[in-house]
Every structure is written in C-alpha cells, then in structure tokens.
Amino acid sequence: MENLNDFLIPSLLIFFAGLAGVVLKKNLLVVLMCLELMLCGAMLALVSFSAAYDDIDGAVFAFFAMAVAAGEVAVALAVVVQFFKIRRSVCADDVDTLSGE
C-alpha cells in the first residue's frame, strides 16, 4: 500500500458511488449525501497526489474544500427543510415550482 494507485483507486470508487447516487437517486437528502461523498472522493485524490509529491499545497486545498463543503451542505439542508415545510415531500420530482404549469 505504498503506491499512488493504492489510494487513487478507493477515491475513484467512492467518487463514482457518489456520482451514481447524485444522478440516479430521487430523494433530495440522499442526493446531498452522495454529493458529499463525491467531494470526499475528490479530496482523497487531492491528498494522495499531495502526499506522493511531498508537497503540502494539495492538502491545504483539500482543507478549503472541506470548509466550503460544510457551508454548502448546511445551506442545502436548510433549503430542503423549507421545501419540506411547503410541499411535505423531499422528492426531487416535486421540485417543479418554476415549471409554469
């Protein structure tokens, strides 16, 4: 477990599991969770490249990604809660207020 590949492959698997969830799931909460998973997978790749080149910049960038992801998920969850108050549903198909029908 010393090669760069040993850490890139798990990050790729995690990223694609998240991508599959974002594209295929319809529940807004699960979609958000999968979005977090995608961010985490990308972060893992950043840190493994950073470790391979023995340069700290990538790790610091991953740190920023973590901070922004925390803010993003908080806002998104607030929006989901408000949406649930209006529509009593968290299904992505119900988010059609702007569809003009």
Binding site: M1, N3, L4, L8, A51, Y53
Partner: peptide
C-alpha cells in the same frame, strides 16, 4: 499513473 510512493 506515475510510479510514486505515497507513505514513505
């Protein structure tokens, strides 16, 4: 993948 070592 470049042949780099991660955990020295």
């Amino acid at each position: 993948c470049p042949d780099l070592q991660v955990a020295l």
